[in-house]
Design a protein around this nucleic acid. Structure first.
Length: 501
RNA sequence: CGCGGGGUAGAGCAGUUGGCAGCUCGGCGGGCCCAUAACCCGCAGGUCGCCGGUUCGAGUCCGGCCCCCGCAACCA
């Protein structure tokens, strides 16, 4: 079963609008999904929205909507932006869907049956104005700042998950690499968590109304983590009548997550799966965080960038590229909004776009748009680039793929400058034919490399050399040298990425 | 002393086992004229967060300190 690939993004909380952090995680998953499809693997790519909890209910009330109406609208924002970004997900799970509710109820029952869940009491400060528990830190001179009331100390009955029972097994799985946590620095962070106190966690709430009822106690609602994490299997049909997809695709080959939810995915989730006797995910990749102009992204600072704006300004492919090229996959990085224009112009317009334009223009000008005789002068360097490109993506290093694309462009520009085709046109037609062949074939490779990251551009590039129809091929059929044949038609490319300003 | 990540050129980042500090963008100067005023070559720019230690030699190893970030409001 090594030719399937199941990749997930976090499910995004609907109490927020999509921002570039969400987009970064989702685009990354999309790149890997597209790459694996291109390898010929059977890919299942899941994303979705997390829709329960008191915050959602509050926001809905503020907006004068029912929680479900509110969720429909905000979940729609995510679906729309993924559509605009050409995200190729196979499924979109919403935690308010019936299939998910069924699956979660099944899981909770199962955890109860195996004795992983026990009843206990949660004690906390409760504000009747907020209708929720608040912490001491929230208090202003002993009162709830929103309602100017003293919260009462109350106890509520809750169900808890016996995390401690499973911690040694989870630690062992991660230590032995059965669950691979990437990058390495994050793996160390997770191993550090086991040395600290990790408490059993509550899986239900009595006062929250907007949620999935606990199947064995309807006075309670299932609390966030069991609800949210389970999406990765409920979407595949786990706990439902039709679980074919679950049998086929689980365990996940890759969960992509943000660092804020590392503990839940690397500790709680495997523990729940072990308790329920379900296989654990193979890889968990923690993405870095953007800071903007050195500052953390936040609503209060107001520096949040809407991915829709990027698409409107640059188009879908460039938006994808610009987000991915900021820093190595897995690292944090700072960005400046003004840099997007600079990078667009240098990498895309001057780099990829201009190269395709100059090569196809020369092919047309010197050989009437037909591929001249074959040659393999650039065969070796291209093979080397492919190797690091593929090794990189096999380890989820999207930055290596981008590096390969840049190297290919640099190789081609340098090759043109070295050989000066405009001089060969006057002095040495035979040599010119070889140079143009090498460049045309190189463009074809560039088109293939670009595919996972910029799918539309890939087709445009491959169209110029008449090789855009690759639906029935795998990458391994296409990424070796010499597939362009003498006489193949080359079409002069229009500007792929018009310069901005 | 809670745990973990990080501080390297104007900006964003690489730096494997300690051995002449690199990449991309931006700036400056040259070249070219096929191409989207694009491309190629060269130059400038760094007390590698601070202090101390080990060493023939430290961005890298050790100790201490400062600052930023995540775990821990909203949130990938």
């Amino acid at each position: 079963m090594h030719n399937k690939f199941y990749v997930t993004t976090p499910i995004y909380y609907v109490n927020d609008k999509p921002h570039i952090g969400h987009a970064y995680a989702t685009i990354s998953a999309d790149v890997l999904a597209r790459y694996h499809r291109f390898l010929g693997h059977e890919v299942h790519f899941l994303t979705g929205t997390d829709e329960h909890g008191s915050k959602v209910a509050e926001s809905a009330a503020k907006a004068g909507q029912t929680p479900q109406e509110f969720c429909d609208i905000t979940s729609g924002h995510f679906q729309m932006v993924w559509d605009r970004l050409d995200i190729s997900n196979n499924d979109f799970i919403r935690t308010t869907e019936e299939r998910h509710k069924q699956g979660v109820a099944f899981i909770l029952n199962r955890l109860k049956e195996v004795g992983a869940i026990y009843e206990s009491e949660y004690e906390g400060l409760y504000c009747s104005g907020c209708e929720k528990f608040i912490t001491e830190k929230d208090l202003v001179s002993g009162e709830c700042p929103d309602h100017k009331k003293k919260p009462e100390l109350i106890k509520e009955k809750n169900y808890f998950f016996k995390l401690s029972n499973y911690l040694p097994q989870v630690e062992k799985l991660i230590d032995e690499g059965k669950i691979k946590v990437h990058p390495e620095s994050r793996r160390r962070e997770v191993m550090g968590l086991f040395k600290q106190e990790l408490n059993d966690f509550s899986v239900s709430r009595e006062h929250v109304k907007w949620g999935i009822p606990v199947p064995f106690d309807v006075s309670q609602v299932i609390y966030v983590w069991v609800d949210a994490l389970s999406n990765y299997i409920t979407a595949l049909g786990y706990g439902q009548a039709d679980d074919v997809a679950f049998k086929k695709f689980w365990p996940a080959d890759l969960h992509i997550i943000g660092k804020d939810i590392l503990k839940f995915h690397c500790v709680y989730w495997p523990a729940m799966l072990i308790a329920a006797d379900i296989e654990v995910p193979k890889n968990i990749f923690i993405t870095g965080y953007f800071t903007i102009d050195g500052q953390k992204m936040s609503k209060t600072i107001g520096n949040i960038i809407d991915p829709n704006e990027l698409v409107s300004q640059f188009g879908s492919d460039p938006a994808r590229y610009l987000l991915l090229c900021q820093f190595p996959f897995g690292a944090d990085g700072d960005i400046k909004a003004e840099n997007f224009v600079l990078q667009y112009n240098s990498d895309l317009a001057n780099g990829i776009g201009n190269l395709v334009s100059r090569v196809t223009a020369m092919a047309e000008k010197y050989f009437g748009g037909a591929v001249p005789e074959q040659d393999d002068e650039l065969k070796e360097p291209v093979a080397a680039i492919w190797q690091s490109y593929q090794e990189g993506l096999a380890n989820f290093q999207i930055d290596k793929a981008i590096e390969g694309i840049k190297k290919t462009v640099t190789l081609a520009d340098g090759y043109i400058d070295k050989n000066k085709p405009w001089e060969l046109a006057k002095t040495d037609r035979a040599k010119l034919a070889k140079v143009i062949y090498n460049l045309s074939e190189l463009i074809r490779h560039l088109g293939l490399m670009v595919y996972p990251i910029m799918p539309e551009t890939s087709v445009k590039i491959l169209n110029t050399v008449g090789k855009a129809d690759f639906t029935n091929y795998h990458l391994s059929d296409l990424n070796h040298w010499g597939l362009l044949n003498p006489g193949d038609k080359i079409n002069k490319s229009e500007a792929l990425f018009p310069r901005i300003q």
